[in-house]
Design a protein around this nucleic acid. Structure first.
Ligand SMILES: [Mn+2]
Ligand SMILES: [Mn+2]
Ligand SMILES: [Zn+2]
Ligand SMILES: [Zn+2]
Lengths: 137, 137
DNA sequence: ATAAAAAATGCACTTCCGTTGCACTAATAT
DNA sequence: ATATTAGTGCAACGGAAGTGCATTTTTTAT
């Protein structure tokens, strides 16, 4: 049993062929991927399957969904041991206006914000737009 | 000439009847509005006109577009003298999971973030999700 | 005032992404 | 071996954003 299969099973996701391929695809990429990206990478698979795979991965805490402001949902593998729901694990995301790529900056946590009275924070999303390290070189 | 007409003209936007109505509608609301909201409020007007009015307002710095993570673009009037493009004027937005409303927290500026080497920030979007002051009461 | 030009509006249609229903197939449990 | 559950594929739908073009309204020039 491979490392990936073990990872999936540890999150109670059955390691089907398709799921292993998608996991591998995402692990090899250092950037967040859209459904369309996966669709293009696996042309013979049906979009619905890929879509539902991402949903399953998300529900089981294998990936987290990223809203980078492009109105296209992106996904990235969670770090080992990450708890995306918890405030302490909320990292920011960077979207490059040049290459259009979105990356997790997992080291950069979202700072705690003091809200006006009555407001209760449950989640936060911080996206920085600009030029990425690859494009600014 | 009314106050609103003067405001529009000062931003080089011709104060047509429709535009004045939309401006007034947004000024009366304390929350960010979607195109659909305006569409419902002015049922006899065509969606395209409303759509293009918002675009014009945005280009001329009368409103700013808000991406609150719902994948529905919201718009809110800019504060007098605000320069949304500048980092110093970037405020955060709050989206309530209960009433589904989005508000500008214009007092809460987005804190400056130190990015890894090579990353150049040009814009930022910070959305806090939770329960708003009206719903938490 | 009249005509020409420019701007705004309305209608129809398209595109894109996300999502769902249902049938079919593969895997698992009894 | 059979029943049950989980995964996949196909087809269609839906909402929201966006565009091309005809028509109307407003502005400008004559
Ligand atoms: Mn991330
Ligand atoms: Mn705002
Ligand atoms: Zn880049
Ligand atoms: Zn609320």
């Amino acid at each position: 049993m491979t490392e990936i299969e073990k990872t999936l099973e540890s999150k109670t996701v059955r390691p089907t062929a398709m799921r292993i391929l998608i996991y591998k695809y995402m692990a090899d990429k250092e950037i967040a991927v859209a459904l369309t990206d996966i669709e293009n990478a696996f042309a013979k698979a049906d979009r619905t399957t890929l879509y539902r795979t991402l949903k399953t991965f998300e529900e089981k805490g294998i990936v987290h969904q990223i809203d980078d402001g492009t109105n296209i949902s992106k996904y990235a593998l969670c770090e080992p041991g990450c708890n995306c729901e918890l405030e302490q694990d909320l990292h920011l995301h960077f979207h490059c206006g040049n290459c259009e790529e979105t990356v997790c900056l997992t080291e950069q946590k979202i700072p705690h914000i003091n809200l006006p009275d009555g407001y209760i924070a449950e989640d936060a999303n911080l996206v920085i737009k600009g030029i990425c390290e690859k494009c600014s070189g």
